[in-house]
């Protein structure tokens, strides 16, 4: 178990591309951190810089109070699970797991104990003599996990380890990885572009966008009070309803009405409302907006009601089976559920 600290890390690739623009991150021992963001935002770069596979252009990275900037990847006491697993195709499952330990000159019996233990944990004991090419996708994934576990590292690094699996296996492995990590208590950084994976697995989520950290927070914080329009639109499916408006103090003027705010804001803003935080009624009052219904998507447990507020598309979650009321419809939202962002900067206000 180790804490990890990333201070003012910048990464500029030799071709001049500025991939990480000043990252700061403090990770507690045993924490499971998920780096999430759209593809190309620099998640892998940041992870690989922490691993030592890329050199940071500036800034400082420490693992367990030891500055590791100039330490070889093999000496950072980390383990990494790659997207395509990166198993050594010419080695058996056993050798794949033992390779890192051998290179650390561990005695053979100790290597054996550790490999057998990891194999047992992952249900791989039967397959130790197989080559990776003789395994299914899920089994290869487990071997990659095993290779990481046997080293008893200070830090696990995962780079989209589940994206090559089918949906069912993916959700199963999600749970397993988290379970294993809790058991072992190893600090972990997990990269994914899948916000569901991020929400379900993370102790804390780091949202990256264009090489910058947009927000760091628990899944609930990220979901309920996103720090920027980007985070609001990236996290959550269906995404948060966003629209431009003008705030005048404690309420916000919108076509056909106004919404209350729970704090004072002035000027042009972008507001964001989660679909499940809006309620459809047929009762108009001072704090409702007229809603035009287009169609309803049936998802079994819930329904997504698609419509418009003025010209802006707007989606509402409905949990009850009751049909929509007849006649004119309205949307009401409580003040604390209206997220307000600056229209120019996109940052929370």
């Amino acid at each position: 178990m180790a804490n990890v600290s990333v201070k003012d890390v910048e990464k500029i690739y030799p071709n001049g591309f500025h991939a990480i623009k000043g990252a700061n991150l403090e990770i507690e021992p045993g924490e499971f951190i998920v780096l999430v963001g759209p593809s190309g935002c620099g998640k892998s770069t940041l992870l690989r810089t922490i691993a030592g596979l890329e050199e940071a252009s500036s800034g400082e990275i420490s693992i367990g109070d030891r500055v590791v900037n100039d330490i070889d990847p093999a000496d950072r006491n980390i383990a990494m699970v790659f997207q395509n697993y990166a198993l050594y195709p010419h080695m058996t499952v056993y050798k794949n797991m033992a390779y890192g330990l051998k290179n650390r000159k561990l005695p053979n019996d100790q290597i054996d104990t550790q490999v057998q233990k990891a194999a047992l944990m992952l249900g791989l004991s039967e397959h130790l003599d197989r080559k990776p090419s003789q395994l299914s996708g899920g089994q290869r994934q487990r071997v990659a996990m095993g290779r990481a576990i046997v080293r008893s590292p200070d830090l696990f690094l995962f780079d989209e380890p589940l994206s090559n699996l089918d949906a069912k296996l993916r959700s199963q492995m999600r749970i397993e990885i988290r379970k294993l990590q809790r058991e072992l208590g190893v600090t972990s950084i997990y990269v994914t572009h899948d916000q569901v994976e991020a929400m379900t697995m993370a102790d804390r989520i780091v949202v990256l966008n264009g090489g910058k950290i947009e927000q760091i927070g628990t899944p609930a914080e990220i979901y309920n009070s996103p720090a920027s329009v980007f985070v609001a639109s990236f996290m959550g499916a269906p995404p948060m309803n966003l629209m431009d408006a003008v705030a005048d103090g404690n309420s916000i003027a919108l076509p056909g009405g106004a919404l209350p705010l729970n704090h004072e804001v002035h000027g042009p803003v972008t507001i964001g409302i989660r679909p499940e935080k809006a309620v459809i009624t047929d009762q108009a009052n001072g704090a409702t907006l007229p809603f035009t219904h287009d169609f309803t998507e049936e998802l079994g447990a819930i329904r997504l009601v698609h419509g418009h507020l003025g010209d802006t598309p707007f989606v509402v979650h409905r949990h009850d089976d009751a049909p929509l009321p007849d006649g004119p419809l309205f949307v009401s939202v409580a003040g604390e559920n209206v997220n307000v962002f600056d229209q120019a900067t996109g940052q929370k206000r």
């Binding site: 180790a2 420490s62 367990g64 109070d65 030891r66 900037n69 100039d70 330490i71 200070d154």
Partner: peptide, 12 residues
């Protein structure tokens, strides 16, 4: 593994 000294010295 929690060494407190920094390894900046190794950089060169």
């Amino acid at each position: 593994m929690t060494k407190t000294e920094t390894n900046r010295g190794q950089s060169a």
